[in-house]
Every structure is written in structure tokens, then in C-alpha cells.
Simulated scan of single mutants.
Amino acid sequence: MKLERFEGDEPRDLLRALRRALGAGPAIAVGQGRELPADVPPGTAVVLTTSGSTGVPKSVRLSRHALTASALATSARIGAGQWLLPLSATYIAGIQVLVRGLVEGTEPAILSGRFSAAAFAHVVSGMRSSRGGVRVPTYTSLVPAQLQTLVDAADDAEVRRALASFEAILVGGQALPAALHDRATELGARIVRTYGSTETSGGCVYDGVPLDGVTVAEVDGELRIAGPMLAEEYVGDPELTTRTFVTDGDGMRWYRTGDAGAVTDGRVSVTGRIDNVIVSGGVNVSLDRVERVVRELPGLAEAVVVGAPDERWGETPVVVAARTGEAPELTEVRAAVEAALGKPARPSALVFVDALPRLTSGKPDRRAIRGLVG
């Protein structure tokens, strides 16, 4: 099967290319992948090159079956209707919004250009429609930074109405602070926390519960995922493919997520990246756990915690956040972290910047942020 590179960033062009890719082809290459083959195995729909926010970019091969299985499992869990795409269409969450529309036979609404609360409310106002006299449910997918923007602008009645109008708002890409979740819920938003990755065709665990057909297990502290949504391979990297996708003695294929977590009574909890750990004074400190504590403090809901060199301790956590009108002092941050995680996890600095560097997906650019603190 031919692999054609998708150029540009117009979501409706990508929607047309995806419609062909989910049918007879050709498959499409999305992202900045280099040296990709001209042909891919039959059944391939998309080769998506990840952003590489914390490592080397990887070109993930996704089949038609994986993408449609994910879309069908989502509609089985939360319902079917019309979707709004406010995300970049060239990341897995955006691609899945388009795929769900194709699978359900509905044209997705698209928010083009820079995301803002006003633009979001305007597009949502045009989605109110019915079929046969029955209202068509609406759905959307956001990253936490976008949800924060909408919550902060909720004094505007149109923004409030827009937030409350969706049957479900999927929020993923990074951990959602509890305070932000609660504020959005108070405004009438029906939030669904999602967990997944490009390798799982997007979110495959909703509010801690795996979608139908998905199995999540904890092996030696690492979460592993099995199911029909798994990617086929990393194109051009058989060694990484073998290391990441493993088959057990019963013949079940698993994706090793690299995330630390647990599965208790069927519910999945994620505590952070296994490799996002520093050694401070001889003690292992999970930066993800520090970040979760910090993000519950006023004014730090979008803060990022990175490791920085320290002459005495080797490395210490550093909090980097965008300037806002409300923010605690470093002493308050250190006290909160110490109370939750102990002294070794206390941040050594609180750095404010005009704006956090972000990838086009909306996620924080952690490599760039790390560069800000040395």
C-alpha cells in the first residue's frame, strides 16, 4: 500500500485524506517523520510521527482496524453524535476526533486558528442541531490548558453555555488538576479524563476504566495495555518495536507504556513516567508526583516541574509557571510538597515566565522548559 505524506495543517484536507485512508487507501504520513518508506503493509491507515516532547520523535504505524476500533469503543462508552475539533488535527487526539466523525457519519465542527474562549463559544453556537426532531448530542476533546482558558473566561454567559452544552468533554494529553476538574464541573461541564497515547490510537481508559476490549495490567510497577487499538510498529525502528510491544506466554500482545501506576478493582491509576525521576541527595524523586502536588496550589494549575543541576544535592525539582495574578511563594510550595512527599522532593526554585513554551498539540514543551532552568 502506498504511503503519501500529508502536507499542511488544514483539518478538512486531513479529513478527506483520512476518509480515503480508512477505505481503499492510500495510507497517509502525518507529522515530521523523515525517511519513511514509500509503501507500508496493507491495512495501514496512518503513520503518525510523535512530537518528541521528552525524547526522540517516533513514527507510529496505525492500522484502519486500530483507529476504527478506538472510535467505536468511544461511542459505546459515551454515546455518538457530532464532534468539535479544537485541537491540532495532526496529533492523535485530533485525528481521533476526525475518525469518530467518519465512523459515525457526521461532519465534525472545526475550530480553526488560535484557540480562544470566544472562538470556542462561537463555533459551539453553530453546532445546535437536530435529526428527525431529536437533538444531536455533541462532544469535544480538549487538553487541560484549553479547559483552563474556558474556565477562566466563564464569566461570559456564552462561554458557560458552550461548556455545559456537551454530552462529554474528553480531557487528556497530561494530568488534569483536581481543582480545574472541579471548577469545570461546577460550571456544568461533563468532563471525562482520558488516558492513552499515539501507540493506543489515543485515549483508551476513561475516568480510570478501560474501554471495552481494552485490558490494562501492572507489571513490575509499569502499566501495560492490550487491545485492538494498539499500533503495529515504530516504522524503521524494529529494536524499539520489540522492546515496547511484547507478547506474553498466552499470545497476548501488550504495549509497555513507560508509565508507573496500578490497577485496583479494575480501575487504573497513573502516578507518572517511570523515567521522569531524578536523584536528589541520593533519594529518587518523581517529578510527576511533585508536579501533581504543585498544580493543586492557587495560580500553579499549569506549572511544570523539571530537574535542574544542584551542587549540593546533584539535582533538585524546579517549578516553572506562567505569570498570573495569583501565585504562592516558594516557601508555601516547598511546605506543600514536603507535607505530601517528604523533604527530598521540595523544589529549590520557583521560576515565572511570560508564557510556557508549548508544542502545537497544546502540551508543555518540556525540553524547552528544562532549557530555561539550566
Score class of each variant (00 low, 15 high):
Met1Lys: 11
Met1Asn: 11
Arg5Asp: 10
Leu15Glu: 10
Ala17Asp: 10
Ala21Val: 03
Ala21Pro: 07
Leu22Pro: 15
Gly23Ala: 02
Ala24Pro: 13
Ala24Tyr: 13
Ala29Ile: 06
Val30Cys: 07
Gly31Asp: 02
Gln32Arg: 14
Thr44Ala: 06
Ser53Ala: 13
Gly55Ile: 09
Val60Arg: 05
Arg61Met: 12
Leu62Ser: 11
Ala66His: 03
Ala73Glu: 00
Ile78Trp: 06
Ile78Ser: 03
Ile78Pro: 04
Ala80His: 12
Leu85Cys: 05
Pro86Lys: 03
Ala89Glu: 07
Thr90Gln: 12
Gly94Thr: 07
Gln96Asn: 12
Val99Phe: 03
Arg100Glu: 00
Leu102Gly: 05
Thr106Val: 13
Thr106His: 12
Ile110Lys: 08
Leu111Lys: 05
Ser112Ile: 14
Gly113Thr: 11
Phe115Gly: 08
Ala118Pro: 12
Phe120Met: 00
Val123Pro: 10
Val123Trp: 05
Ser125Ala: 14
Ser129Trp: 09
Ser130Thr: 12
Arg131Trp: 14
Gly132Arg: 07
Val136Tyr: 11
Tyr139Leu: 07
Thr149Gln: 15
Val151Glu: 01
Ala154Met: 10
Ala154Asn: 02
Asp156Cys: 12
Gly172Asn: 10
Ala189Val: 04
Ile191Thr: 08
Glu199Ile: 01
Glu199Leu: 08
Gly203Val: 00
Cys204Asn: 00
Val205Lys: 00
Val205Glu: 07
Val209Phe: 06
Val219Met: 15
Glu222Val: 07
Leu223Trp: 07
Ile225Lys: 04
Ile225Asp: 05
Ala226Arg: 04
Ala226Thr: 08
Pro228Cys: 11
Pro228Met: 08
Tyr234Asn: 01
Asp237Trp: 02
Glu239Gly: 14
Val246Glu: 13
Asp248Val: 02
Gly249Asp: 05
Asp250Ile: 07
Gly251Pro: 11
Met252Gln: 15
Arg253Tyr: 11
Ala262Thr: 15
Thr264Ser: 10
Val270Tyr: 01
Gly272Trp: 03
Arg273Pro: 02
Ile274Glu: 13
Asp275Gln: 10
Ile278Lys: 00
Gly281Ala: 00
Ser286Val: 05
Glu291Gly: 09
Arg292Trp: 14
Glu296Cys: 04
Pro298Trp: 08
Ala301Ser: 11
Glu302Lys: 13
Val304Glu: 08
Gly307Glu: 07
Pro309Trp: 10
Asp310Thr: 08
Val319Leu: 06
Val320Ser: 06
Ala322Trp: 06
Gly325Phe: 06
Gly325Leu: 08
Glu326His: 13
Glu329Ser: 10
Thr331Ile: 15
Ala336Trp: 11
Val337Gln: 03
Gly342Val: 09
Lys343Ser: 15
Pro344Asn: 01
Pro347Asp: 00
Ser348Asn: 12
Ala349Glu: 15
Phe352Tyr: 14
Asp354Ile: 10
Leu356Met: 10
Leu356Cys: 02
Arg358Ile: 05
Ala368Gly: 04
Val373Cys: 02
